[in-house]
């Protein structure tokens, strides 16, 4: 078989023994990574644009990227997009923070003391299967229809999963690390604060990052409760008026905010736990 000139560089790399990006768990340079990441975003965007530009497709059924962008602009200029985003971010982060602040000490106790685990884990496991949406009438009854009710829904949707995952993070701290401290004379409190908590921190931050995403998925549910602003509320209202383009804007914005927060968590992880990010 003859070798065409164009194929020679590829053969050269194969000869050098350097594994290509398509070898199993092969390497990918930073530039290549961003190239593929951009592809992953631009290709669906292109497909969407092509699919929506056909004359056969009704705008109500599938608005194009341009329609959605225009709607974004009018939402920003005429309908106070920023305050919708602000109130939604406020609700999600407040519900999430309440959840985190209560879940953390509980998880430390569950993961450290077996009686606490026996009391709380089956109960939590039971509650977490209850659908957060179904709590809406109860929340309205008990908490009212103020801001606190929306925050409560996000709390209910996030808290129980968060406790269980964090307790698991705490339980995964290697026993040898705990016992080493004990044989150096560490008291119970010192073992928890200086070893167990410190050792679990990176995993706990990862759990926070993941559950933050879940908190966002409960936004639309939370804003079912007597809201008159917010991204989730706007999506619900747009549905009533068949403003499909606005639904698109709302969904995409929630996705983007989630992406930004996810990246902030990852950045915090790199800054806070440098020993876990030595090779990059």
């Amino acid at each position: 078989m003859q070798t065409r000139p164009g194929t020679r560089p590829r053969r050269a790399t194969a000869k050098s023994g350097r594994p290509g990006m398509w070898s199993i768990r092969g390497p990918l340079s930073r530039n290549q990574y961003w190239l593929f990441a951009a592809l992953g975003l631009l290709v669906p965007l292109g497909l969407w644009w092509i699919a929506s530009s056909g004359a056969a497709v009704d705008k109500v059924f599938l608005p194009g990227p341009v329609d959605v962008f225009n709607r974004l602009v009018t939402w920003y200029t005429e309908d106070d997009l920023l305050s919708d985003m602000g109130i939604s971010i406020y609700r999600v982060t407040t519900g999430f923070l309440f959840s985190a602040v209560i879940a953390l000490p509980l998880a430390l106790m569950i993961g450290t003391f077996r009686p606490v685990q026996a009391v709380l884990e089956p109960l939590t496991d039971f509650i977490r299967y209850m659908p957060a949406v179904a709590f809406i009438p109860l929340v309205m009854l008990w908490v009212g229809i103020e801001e606190s009710s929306k925050i409560s829904i996000i709390f209910i949707g996030t808290f129980f999963q968060m406790v269980l995952m964090m307790a698991e993070d705490v339980r995964r701290v290697p026993l040898a690390q705990i016992e080493a401290a004990q044989t150096m004379g560490a008291q119970k409190g010192e073992t928890i604060s200086l070893v167990i908590f410190q050792a679990a921190k990176p995993a706990l931050l990862d759990t926070l990052r993941v559950t933050m995403g879940w908190a966002w998925t409960y936004l639309v549910v939370a804003e079912l409760v007597a809201a008159n602003s917010g991204l989730g509320y706007s999506i619900l209202k747009a549905q009533r008026f068949l403003q499909t383009d606005k639904i698109f804007v709302g969904i995409i914005l929630i996705g983007l905010i989630g992406l930004v927060m996810d990246q902030l968590f990852r950045l915090a992880h790199r800054k806070a736990f440098p020993w876990l990010h030595l090779r990059s």
């Binding site: 040898a176 080493a180 401290a181 004379g185 200086l194 050792a199």
Partner: peptide, 30 residues
């Protein structure tokens, strides 16, 4: 357990969030 009987384990007993010197000085935090 007590500080008069220190134990060395097969592995996973160092504190990865502390540098070598801080690991060695860990008992000083107690």
């Amino acid at each position: 357990p007590g500080a008069d009987r220190a134990m060395v384990f097969q592995h996973y007993s160092l504190y990865p969030w502390l540098k070598v010197m801080e690991n060695i000085k860990f008992s000083r935090r107690l």
